[in-house]
Simulated assay, not measured.
Amino acid sequence: MVEPTRARVAVDVRAGALGAEEADAVRRLVADAAAQDGVAPVSEQPLLWLRSDEAPVVHVLARSGAAADGELAGYAQVDVGATTSASAELVVHPSARREGVGTALLTTARETAARVPDRTLRVWAHGATPAARSFAAAVGMPVVRELWRMSLDLADRPDRPDRPLPPHVTVRPFVPGEDEEAWRRVNSRAFAYHPEQGRMTSADLRAREAEAWFDPAGFLLAEREGLLLGSVWTKVHAAGELGDEPVGEIYVVGVDPDAQGLGLGGALTDLGLTHLAARGLRRAVLYTGAENEVAIRTYRRVGFEPESVDVMFGSDTPGSPGGVTMAP
Results as ranks from 00 to 15, higher is better:
residue 180 E to N: 05
residue 141 M to C: 15
residue 98 R to Y: 08
residue 70 G to E: 08
residue 93 H to G: 08
residue 107 T to Q: 09
residue 81 G to M: 04
residue 146 E to V: 07
residue 126 H to I: 03
residue 94 P to S: 11
residue 187 N to A: 06
residue 102 G to K: 03
residue 132 A to C: 14
residue 115 R to W: 01
residue 165 L to K: 06
residue 149 R to S: 09
residue 79 D to V: 00
residue 173 P to W: 04
residue 187 N to F: 10
residue 156 D to I: 00
residue 180 E to Q: 14
residue 115 R to V: 05
residue 151 S to V: 11
residue 202 S to I: 15
residue 181 E to T: 01
residue 135 F to R: 14
residue 207 A to V: 11
residue 124 W to A: 00
residue 113 A to G: 11
residue 202 S to K: 06
residue 174 F to R: 00
residue 186 V to R: 03
residue 113 A to F: 00
residue 172 R to T: 14
residue 160 R to W: 00
residue 210 A to S: 06
residue 193 Y to I: 06
residue 100 G to I: 10
residue 100 G to F: 04
residue 144 V to N: 03
residue 70 G to V: 02
residue 206 R to K: 04
residue 139 V to P: 08
residue 83 T to A: 15
residue 76 A to M: 02
residue 183 W to D: 03
residue 157 R to A: 05
residue 165 L to W: 11
residue 69 D to P: 01
residue 74 G to A: 10
residue 163 R to T: 05
residue 160 R to A: 15
residue 180 E to L: 06
residue 114 A to T: 09
residue 156 D to W: 01
residue 128 A to E: 05
residue 201 T to F: 12
residue 125 A to S: 15
residue 203 A to T: 08
residue 154 L to T: 03
residue 136 A to F: 09
residue 172 R to Q: 08
residue 186 V to Q: 04
residue 162 D to G: 15
residue 181 E to R: 09
residue 108 T to Q: 15
residue 103 T to W: 08
residue 107 T to P: 04
residue 113 A to R: 00
residue 146 E to A: 06
residue 70 G to A: 08
residue 148 W to P: 09
residue 206 R to L: 15
residue 71 E to G: 03
residue 96 A to P: 04
residue 122 R to Q: 04
residue 148 W to R: 07
residue 193 Y to P: 01
residue 84 T to E: 14
residue 136 A to W: 05
residue 139 V to S: 02
residue 165 L to V: 13
residue 176 P to K: 12
residue 172 R to L: 00
residue 84 T to Q: 12
residue 182 A to I: 12
